[in-house]
Design a protein around this nucleic acid. Structure first.
Lengths: 244, 244
DNA sequence: TTAATATGTGTCAAAAATACACATTTTAGT
DNA sequence: ACTAAAATGTGTATTTTTGACACATATTAA
């Protein structure tokens, strides 16, 4: 607080730089979730100008006393309050700073993305609150440059999938290998051979066999697995690359 | 221009958001170069408060009519005017937005890094202008959070080295395989077996044998190679991963 | 002429990636 | 009760990639 007052006075006495302090910062969040079939991204209807009524990414101006990360965290919590976001994966993407990207004035947007476990409650809530879980491959036209931000997020997610076990943040704690494979195929836009996929996953030795099965809609029951986070932590300390 | 006047008046009438437009954006640039032995990063002495006299990354406030990328480009050109920066590799790192990172007020810094071919002229110029090419592994304490930005840039460079042939942007157009290996060893902080290194490089089939040699200070003459950019362009279109 | 320093080259073994097919279990429909 | 459809789950052979490893040759400095 003290520091803020101090800096405010300081700026007032520095005529040479005063004109730079007239930009706004906003944060946008690309929230990825997986419904068992498809990867999805949460978008919402704007209810004010500019672009009133258009779809957009959940976004928020940065207040003077909030760091970017704190702002992103608050944005996430107010957008999907029902979801456990504490252990979700979140990361900054990039600053998007085209001069006229926002007609209100100079707004530099800092994009974030995160990966959450979607709950049924979230899906119901979403529709009530003017939000939509849009399919990864069918994102409509969005306000501002938000389509560009999503494209960037998709690329980043793809890279992360190849090197880090982020996929598990999208699945329920207990999952089947088929779910895992569908997820990877969706994220990397590529088909895998079932036997080779499983071989690779088992070789990583990061799955715990739960000795439990779950009924699928049709066909045999599936075995359930869990991701061994502790083991991964230990391995990743010495620069370990995950799959693919 | 028209748009700028429009947005200015618009903001004036929106009391609810006016308070957000009081942040400054700065751009910092981590400039990597290679002197044949070591990777180096360009730093400069500050000549004004705050942190007067301290080392910092080349930095610049963003003016209202400049995009982040344009600003970064101008920063690079005014910092090392003698270097050909047109074909150098440049990329945004991240936005650094801690609340009190700059005592002047709320300044969000957008970090960039770039990779240039160092010329002898640059090295001489640098010292005259209060700049220093600091060794990659021995960066002194810098103003603001610039050490943090450099750490981030080093990580990013390491990742890029593994997947993209960015190394060639650091070497002269014609280089020896020993130079290439020293560079990779420095960037990845890892030793390679000479025969295996060469095997891998040749397998990529992206080097053109120039049928020329160059005298080294001691020992046999070395063969010179050039990087085949056209061929790489074609290969990278279909998601090609470089070496290591 | 000798010692020091640098370049440049091939083989073998292990590990990883890839291609490929069928038996089993369960449900839905008749 | 039977059949068709849909899903799970499993092994082997081949190719490719990685990694370990040693010495002859050219050049310069002393």
């Amino acid at each position: 607080m003290q520091a803020h007052i101090y800096t405010y006075r300081y700026i007032m006495t520095r005529e040479d730089i005063k004109d730079y302090f007239n930009v706004a910062i906003s944060v946008s969040m690309v929230i990825f979730a997986f419904d068992g079939e498809k990867l999805r991204i949460l978008i919402q209807r704007r209810d004010e100008d500019p672009f009133n009524g258009a779809w957009q990414l959940p976004s928020r101006f940065v207040r003077p006393n909030e760091s970017l990360e704190l702002n992103a965290k608050m944005l996430l919590e107010e957008t999907i309050p029902m979801t456990e976001t504490i252990d979700s994966y979140s990361e900054q993407l990039n600053a998007f700073g085209k001069v006229y990207r926002n007609p209100l004035g100079r707004v530099v947007n800092v994009g974030f993305y995160c990966i959450v476990k979607m709950t049924d409650e979230d899906r119901r809530m979403a529709e009530q609150k003017g939000m939509m879980w849009a399919a990864y491959t069918e994102i409509p036209d969005l306000a501002f440059d938000h389509n560009e931000i999503i494209d960037y997020a998709k690329q980043r997610l793809k890279r992360r999938f190849k090197r880090r076990p982020v996929g598990f943040s999208l699945l329920p704690k207990e999952f089947t290998l088929t779910q895992l494979q569908i997820l990877y195929e969706g994220a990397l836009n590529k088909k895998f051979d079932k036997r080779n996929f499983r071989k690779k996953v088992f070789n990583s030795a990061l799955l715990i066999d739960l000795d439990k099965t779950i009924e699928t809609s049709y066909g045999k029951v599936s075995k359930l697995y869990r991701f061994d986070e502790d083991k991964y932590e230990k391995m990743s300390l010495k620069g370990y690359d995950f799959l693919f």
